[in-house]
């Protein structure tokens, strides 16, 4: 890998819709994807709710962005990690999620975090 390619991890930690962080975080990820860096996204804590199936935001007059997460693949953002504990403690399983992810233990996500040049929480 070239020297000027940086490893950048985005960490989604908040539930969607209640605040703008997830949505603007996603906008940041989409722009960064165009720069051909080594991007990954980790979903931790309430961040896992961003990937929940069946979100319908019509009634709250907000633009839904669940579909954008499904489109990340097309932007070559393929490294999606979900924290197993966060998912389980919310009573969710992989079947509840919109996209294919890697379900990982905290230790493994932590190990991948330490390999990063940049980590940005949203």
């Amino acid at each position: 890998m070239e020297d000027n390619v940086k490893k950048i991890m985005h960490v989604m930690r908040r539930a969607p819709h209640g605040s703008i962080y997830t949505y603007e975080g996603l906008e940041m990820i989409l722009i960064m994807a165009a720069y051909e860096q080594d991007l990954s996204i980790a979903f931790i804590g309430d961040g896992v709710y961003a990937l929940k199936k069946n979100q319908d935001t019509e009634g709250i007059s907000m633009k839904g962005f669940a579909k954008t997460f499904m489109a990340l693949d097309g932007y070559d953002v393929e490294k999606l990690y979900v924290d197993r504990v966060s998912l389980e403690e919310r009573g969710l399983t992989e079947d509840d999620l919109l996209v294919d992810v890697e379900l990982l233990d905290s230790v493994e996500i932590g190990r991948r975090m330490t390999e990063q040049d940049v980590v940005i929480h949203h």
Partner: peptide, 20 residues
């Protein structure tokens, strides 16, 4: 400026610190 500039900042610096 645009988010592309943030990407440049992430690339050209040794550290990127987030406050929020």
């Amino acid at each position: 400026t645009g988010l592309g500039t943030l990407t440049d900042i992430a690339i050209r610096n040794d550290r990127l610190l987030t406050f929020g």
